[in-house]
Write a protein that binds this DNA or RNA. Structure first.
Lengths: 189, 189
DNA sequence: CCGCTATATGGCATGGCTCATATATAACTT
DNA sequence: AAGTTATATATGAGCCATGCCATATAGCGG
């Protein structure tokens, strides 16, 4: 996966691993975060497979930059990947829900507290996606050769994140209400 | 993660790895699927760590059953896990959105087609969560010692899946409309 | 002097995935 | 009647991607 994301960026513009990390951070981080170490390792594989090549650019004071560029084979691999058809939903792994599923033995107030904490996190996430990310994307677009449909698409991806964050907020509110309702009925008056 | 899920089930009821796979399939599969091989390996680790013990029950015709039970240490570990506070959102990895992010070079109709395929999958998923899962959960509840808050909680987890599936549907509709709108404007009359 | 930015690389642990294998019965399919 | 597939059960080998942590260098801002 990361493999293809890196190729995708490099096809727009050659850059270093460090730059790639920044590109990811200002774009797809919320759907596919990556550590620097992971990026470098993956670049190594890509180079091994001939999908990218690198060129060392000496620098003073800093480690030399190693600038990566996608090759023709890289473009082909990437295009193949883009053309793949979706046949199954990717499994979604949601640790929180697993925990929640098993927390029937816990005090209801504790569950509500946990939900409130989670709510805060999702709220921040939603606001970040709604307000901060657009700025990063604009910068990123300005710095990159962009197809004219890119802004629309990037915004759609951003929107997906925003909508899901909102759905979490709604779910949490609904769930807290249900828990409180049940607690109210359990020990009435 | 799986470790704790298994413990959670075993604390309700001792069972074999095979049974655990079935328990997962009829409950948290959509938030945490697991292969049989993975389950057995994890049970092995749990046993090593003294969190579960197993007892072999001979059978004719079939491989002997190895029935696992959670130990006291297992209960403690599990409780500790349940008590953990959420401090950060779990990263959500969504391969589809990564692909989508990079598909600016593709024909818009192709993107729409892909979105329609995805829509179908999410639609099925939503309906399954809305209609089939409740039945499984009911069966599962009948077969297990359940706390009286369990049904509420299990349904909340189910609802989270349903709501997220619905959000996907909404996002896809919105995105298709935006793409078609843009295409209409690009080549008018 | 601490910590951040820029840059690259290494090692180890974790946990998931795929595929293979073994065995017996029952239930379909041709 | 023969053959496939499914169900119940357990286990092993090997791959792969991620994660976390450490290290090296150097300049700049506090």
């Amino acid at each position: 996966m990361l493999k293809f994301a890196l190729l995708g960026f490099l096809l727009r513009q050659s850059m270093t691993g460090y730059d790639l990390a920044a590109a990811i951070r200002s774009s797809i981080n919320f759907v596919w975060p990556a550590q620097l170490s992971q990026i470098y390792r993956t670049l190594g594989q890509l180079e091994n497979d001939g999908l990218v090549v690198s060129e060392v650019v000496p620098q003073q004071g800093r480690p030399d930059r190693r600038v990566y560029s996608a090759t023709d084979a890289g473009r082909q691999a990437f295009d193949g990947w883009l053309g793949e058809l979706v046949t199954e939903l990717d499994p979604v792994r949601t640790p929180f829900l697993v925990r929640f599923f098993f927390s029937g033995t816990r005090a209801p107030e504790e569950m509500v507290t946990q939900l409130r904490v989670l709510r805060d996190l999702h709220l921040r996430q939603r606001d970040q996606l709604a307000h901060e990310l657009p700025g990063y994307i604009a910068e990123f677009a300005a710095a990159n050769t962009t197809d004219d449909r890119d802004p629309l698409i990037w915004d759609a991806v951003r929107r997906a994140g925003e909508m899901h964050a909102q759905t979490w907020l709604d779910w949490i509110d609904e769930t807290i209400a249900r828990l409180e309702d049940a607690a109210g009925k359990a020990q009435p008056r």
